[in-house]
Amino acid sequence: MFLALLANLGLGPAAGEVSLDATLVQGLLRRDVNAFEQLYDRHSRHVYALVLRILQHAATAEEVVQDVFLQLWRNSAAYDAERGPFVPWLLTLARNRALDHLRLKSERQRRREDQTDELPPVAAAPEYERELDERRRVERIRSLMGGLLPQQKRAIELAYFEGLSHSEIAAKLSEPLGTVKSWIRNGLLRLKEGLQTAS
């Protein structure tokens, strides 16, 4: 409660939010429904937005979001707060589930069958990561992405939101494989530089 109040007042924002998320996840281990409710209310919009962007179908997106949060409820022990922040882990989980669902409808299923139920590893936040509130975080990444070359942005979006590989993107864009590899790598490195500079 106290940490949520801190976050709402904009005092020591993300530190409070990060701690609150970790505390709420601990509550899931104790089967605390209230903790689950809070986590859902805090993060369901971003999870749903991401999954909807990937699946492009509201009903299916809601099914996947439900699966994601139920998986969180049933496997909360898989998240280790010591390893890294909660939100990136949750969003990665959501993306993976959405892409799995996408691939179930296509022949690309054969590539990811062994990872259907795997939970993603928790990634540590880098040193340059700033503690921003939700709105600023969204603004930041969208702004940085807007600064990329269109082809870099397109290639990254195809990889991220459609789960395409280098070869598949190269085929889709009718571009050389090496070129696509460079676009994606350089685009991500520019994003990283932008985040480091902003911090």
């Binding site: 919009r45 937005a49 809601e62 990634a123 540590a124 880098p126 990444i141 969208r142």
Partner: peptide, 20 residues
């Protein structure tokens, strides 16, 4: 580890939407 965190930030590119 760092790259995974970086990639997770791409989620915020998705247009805003609210579940039912």
């Amino acid at each position: 580890d760092e790259a995974r965190w970086l990639v997770s930030q791409l989620a915020f590119l998705a247009p805003d939407a609210k579940p039912s």
